[in-house]
């Protein structure tokens, strides 16, 4: 078993996901404690030019599986290719993003390699030469510190939690081609349906503006959407708004929705039920706009405004527009 850290890079449509850089950052820190280096595995088709960004963010080596059979993600194609690579290079630690792709791939890969998995971690460190991972359990109502027996030690890491390392433009990539194993793919992606054009997914957003039952109906999301647009933010929702059919489930934040960690979360007309808080409590800054001063959301909010969202939200947008115009 070596002492390197392997980061499974994630790209969709030839664009690297930010979480990949976050993984390279933490991977480099872990590797230096182990006396090794951080490396990346990049899978896809026609991706040569992405190696540079991986190197600049810290990857000492890029293992590149470039094959038309990997043009679209498939759990089996990725798992088969990566399992062969990992068995050859024997990294101490393997990291992937806790994204739709990483969560689909990592358990399969762990089972193939006969190892455990620490999923959706928010912190990673080395303790006595072994990985010590922190992972929220019970929807963030508790944090578990866990270690893994066996090698490699595998973890997925929640996006948006760890910092992106500063890129170093002087670093050039060392690329090592690896064979794609694509001859046995049973479940195949045949199409990708994208959400509304220009819509940002809550799981990836830096800023989220969310609406709850307080918006009163589907048309009540108009000021929310408008504010989100001004801020370049994603639109979130409580389950009450989703279950009422006012907005699609893909917007739902919470225990049975998405877990989000934006820099700024603006909750409008959301009471702050425990299951909603579970999905957004780790946001860096929370703003609550609610007409009920007793609403539990104010207990977790950094800043609150007690008032009618239909008055406050448009005013807020106006104020922000003025500010953006100044800059």
């Amino acid at each position: 078993m070596g002492n390197n850290v392997l980061v499974i890079a994630e790209q969709r449509g030839g664009v690297l996901k930010k979480v990949t850089f976050e993984l390279l950052g933490v991977g480099a820190a872990l590797a230096s404690r182990l006396g090794g280096s951080v490396e990346a595995a990049l899978l896809g088709s026609g991706l040569d030019n992405l190696s540079e960004a991986l190197a600049q963010h810290g990857a000492a080596k890029v293992y590149l599986a470039d094959d038309p059979g990997l043009a679209r993600y498939s759990s089996e194609g990725y798992c088969n290719t990566l399992a062969a690579l990992i068995q050859t290079i024997q990294p101490a630690i393997v990291l992937a993003g806790a994204t739709a792709m990483g969560k689909d791939l990592a358990p399969r890969l762990a089972a193939r390699l006969g190892v455990g998995l620490a999923s959706d971690c928010t912190d990673l460190e080395i303790d006595n030469g072994r990985l010590l991972a922190t992972r929220p359990i019970f929807a963030g109502k508790a944090l578990a510190k866990v270690k893994l027996n066996g090698d490699p030690q595998m973890a997925t890491v929640r996006p948006n939690v760890l910092p992106v390392p500063a890129p170093d433009a002087s670093r050039t990539p060392t690329v090592q081609p690896v064979a794609a194993v694509v001859d046995r793919i049973r479940a195949r992606v045949v199409d990708i349906v994208s959400a509304g054009v220009g819509e940002i997914d809550v799981a990836e957003a830096n800023i989220i503006v969310s609406g709850g039952r307080g918006v009163g109906g589907p048309e009540g999301f108009a000021p929310i959407r408008s504010l989100a647009k001004t801020l370049g933010a994603a639109v979130g929702a409580s389950r009450a708004a989703v279950d009422a059919g006012w907005i699609e489930h893909s917007h739902q934040v919470g225990q049975t929705g998405k877990t989000v960690t934006p820099n700024l979360y603006i909750a409008c007309g959301i009471s702050g039920a425990i299951q909603h808080l579970a999905g957004m409590k780790t946001s860096k800054v929370i703003v609550a706009i609610n007409k009920d001063p007793e609403a539990p959301i104010f207990k977790v909010a950094n800043y609150g405004i007690v008032g009618d969202l239909f008055t406050v939200v448009p005013l807020l947008e106006q104020e922000l527009k003025a500010l953006l115009a100044e800059q």
């Binding site: 190892v115 455990g116 998995l117 620490a118 010590l132 929220p136 359990i137 963030g140 109502k141 508790a142 944090l143 578990a144 510190k145 866990v146 270690k147 893994l148 027996n149 066996g150 409590k281 780790t282 929370i286 609550a288 001063p293 104010f298 207990k299 977790v300 909010a301 950094n302 800043y303 609150g304 405004i305 007690v306």
Partner: peptide, 19 residues
């Protein structure tokens, strides 16, 4: 294969304020 070393409460959020 996964050993739970410890379970901790999540860190408290700093008290917020209503403007």
């Amino acid at each position: 294969k996964l050993q739970v070393m410890e379970v901790l409460p999540p860190p408290d959020r700093p008290p917020g304020r209503v403007i």
